[in-house]
């Protein structure tokens, strides 16, 4: 049990570290000057984080098994009443959810960066804080609206709770793709590198 708790904590720390690394790439000249299109840079960066995450989670599971095989098997036994597909989708949600969060953080960062370029330099600090608050609030509202609409469509189809589970997985993937498309557009057209001397 201890190894599981440790795994969750370590995963949280890694998620934060990877988020910071991902954001650095969008504005660092070292990466922005690479002879790549913004689409390739974005996909490369997001996939690097995604695979780092998968790699780490596999290590966490292996470590949990090595440190306490008995409790590991016990935990597996408690989850014995689902189908393979349910477990696969559950694992998919665990693996994709951080990518969704990283892409959402990037969206706020890139939008803040874009708007900041149109504001006077002497109010940058305060305007960035205000922008982040407004953007997080606004994007939260939009996300709520999208979720409610999705739930209503789903409810009208009178699907079962199993279907709800699968649809939430699809919703997560679709939202990540939509956010990524907006991020790539911002990178291509608006977000510029921020050299240290600037």
């Amino acid at each position: 049990m201890f190894s599981f708790s440790f795994g969750v904590l370590a995963s949280l720390v890694l998620a934060v570290i990877l988020a910071v690394k991902q954001e650095r790439v969008w504005t660092a000249p070292l990466y922005r000057l690479l002879p790549l299109s913004e689409t390739k840079l974005y996909i490369g960066n997001v996939l690097t984080n995604f695979f780092s995450w998968i790699y780490f989670e596999i290590l966490v599971v292996l470590l949990a098994f090595i440190m306490g095989p008995t409790s590991f098997v016990k935990i597996l036994q408690t989850m014995n009443n689902g189908s393979f597909l349910e477990y696969a989708v559950g694992a998919g949600i665990i693996l994709i959810f951080p990518t969704f969060i990283w892409c959402s953080v990037s969206l706020v960062h890139l939008l803040t960066n874009t708007f900041s370029d149109f504001l006077p330099i002497n109010i940058q600090r305060i305007s960035r804080v205000v922008l982040i608050i407004v953007l997080v609030y606004g994007l939260g509202k939009i996300s709520n609206l999208a979720t409610n609409s999705f739930t209503m469509i789903f409810a009208s189809s009178q699907a079962t709770s199993d279907a709800s589970f699968y649809l939430s997985f699809i919703y997560l993937i679709l939202t990540t793709i939509v956010v990524s498309i907006i991020n790539i557009y911002l990178l291509k057209n608006w977000v510029q590198a921020t050299p240290k001397t600037a």
């Binding site: 000057l33 690479l34 590198a193």
Partner: peptide, 29 residues
């Protein structure tokens, strides 16, 4: 590093940003 939105800059007649980056070596890289 900064975006030339109107494609005013061409290197070897190339205005595409990714191609331009491959033709330039800049100390800020």
């Amino acid at each position: 590093n900064y975006i030339d939105r109107k494609n005013s800059i061409s290197i070897n007649t190339e205005t595409n940003s990714a191609v331009r980056k491959s033709l330039v070596s800049f100390t800020e890289q």
